[in-house]
């Protein structure tokens, strides 16, 4: 299935692009998407995934055609 990924913030752009199309097996999870994108295992837990303006758990199942937005926590003030 085809997933469109929109990446917010420079830290999450391992390939330097803000948008990517990722091909995954049916019923793949958010965690599998992040691994497929090449994020390091020790970094994956920090990544926030959003679909249709709702935050997803990493165990959530993706659907063909999903648009997933990725970002990371911000703590400064």
């Amino acid at each position: 299935m085809k997933i469109e990924v929109q990446i917010h913030g420079n830290m999450l752009k391992p390939r330097g692009v803000a948008e990517e199309i990722i091909i995954l097996d049916e019923n793949a999870s958010v965690a599998e998407l992040l691994r497929e994108m090449g994020y390091l295992p020790e970094h994956i837990k920090y990544i926030i995934a959003v679909r249709d303006a709702i935050m997803l758990k990493h165990s959530a199942t993706l659907r063909d055609g999903d648009i997933i937005q990725l970002s990371i926590p911000i703590g400064g003030g």
Binding site: M11, K45, Y46, I48, M55, P73, I74, G75, G76
Partner: peptide, 19 residues
């Protein structure tokens, strides 16, 4: 719930207008 794990912080300075 919103931010279960907090890390990956960079030293990027804060722009005044953002704050």
């Amino acid at each position: 719930c919103a931010i279960p794990y907090a890390s990956m912080e960079s030293n990027t300075p804060i722009i005044g207008s953002t704050a």
